[in-house]
Write a protein that binds this DNA or RNA. Structure first.
Lengths: 193, 193
DNA sequence: ATAATTAGGAACCAATTGGTACAAAACAAA
DNA sequence: TTTGTTTTGTACCAATTGGTTCCTAATTAT
């Protein structure tokens, strides 16, 4: 009963995520954002309301896609034990050898907007908690590590989550730490995989 | 033989550091920056050149002051052994109970500008390296930890540095992890202090 | 067909952006 | 006091900012 939208909603949100991820919120201006989303000005304001709402939608999209696959990876027993899965997470996204380091959108968002934007703070905190919970679960499946010492598991999960975010931050200056096998081995006090 | 400047250079740079630290580079506009520095427009452009140069000066100031005292703390044997000193670092700056979390300026800068600004990337990388080196040194003074296993020390220092930066990032969403004694104890595999 | 409803896109907007120009002012050396 | 040099503050600037208006286009229901 009305004109259908010509752009694909998911593609647009994904484009928004890409550019916000790469440039940050403040440094992304409207023309660039619209180009990345493949949407014209009118459609954008009709569909999203304003720049800030588009940013929140991009964060949700990141949660669904990137955080989602990270959690799935950490749960995938076909990869190996919990330590192998955590190692895989770091090797894949924890600042590998990619030429253009995007880092982690969650890290970017919490650092840039966390203290000034309650909505962003809430979403990013939820995402890092989700990641930490998945790491905690994976730690329950590490041979030689007592899965019933939940205190220790929680502490290790907290450490690894912060290690991950810190590595993401440092990757933005060109830091490449490919030695995750030994680093995580040091942390878990055992050889991995 | 000329008119002396009326503002204090160090105070101005410190003011610039404060506002950039709190708001970030892009989100700090010139009027706010000038107010924080206590300098008028004309004086600002004469003394600093432009906004970006002022940001670099603020980063250098952070290196001299905050990073400097962190390094000094890590070297201060009157505090206790290396583990106690590292613990102190986290308790003091690793997102304590302060109401308004500023996080770490190095973390902010590398995340916001690292990939797009070589000068910022270089300075922030240098500062995180400086911190990591001081942590490495402190690890040489932890009873029960073999100081001659330099490989392990380097790995532990790398982990702790990233743990630190990750905690700084998460502090911006309100995350308060006051349990550093147990977390670092878990990491170093021994009771601390 | 036509009415109703929504998307699209360009023109437009006030406000703000970082940065410049320049003249008045404040000092030191002569 | 005069001269030379630098600082200061204001007025000004073009460009850009995020956002709105409004007319046209495209579709469905009747």
């Amino acid at each position: 009963m009305a004109r259908p939208r010509e752009f694909d909603m998911d593609t647009a949100v994904d484009g928004a995520m890409q550019i916000f991820w790469r440039l940050g919120y403040a440094a992304t201006n409207l023309p660039e954002l619209l180009h990345a989303m493949g949407v014209s000005r009118g459609s954008f304001y009709k569909a999203f309301g304003d720049k800030h709402s588009a940013y929140l939608a991009a964060l949700d999209h990141y949660d669904r896609t990137c955080i989602g696959s990270a959690v799935k990876l950490l749960c995938d027993r076909s990869i190996g034990d919990g330590a192998a899965r955590i190692l895989r997470l770091f090797e894949q996204t924890g600042c590998g050898e990619s030429v253009a380091p995007r880092g982690c959108f969650v890290c970017n968002a919490m650092v840039e907007l966390g203290p000034h934007d309650p909505a962003v703070a809430k979403k990013t905190a939820a995402m890092s908690n989700r990641l930490q919970a998945a790491i905690y679960d994976a730690l329950g499946d590490v041979p030689g590590l007592n899965p019933y010492d939940t205190e220790s598991r929680h502490r290790k999960a907290a450490i690894i989550t912060r290690l991950y975010l810190g590595a993401q931050a440092m990757s933005k200056t060109g830091d490449r730490n490919a030695d995750w096998k030994n680093l995580l081995g040091e942390l878990l006090n055992r050889r991995i995989a």
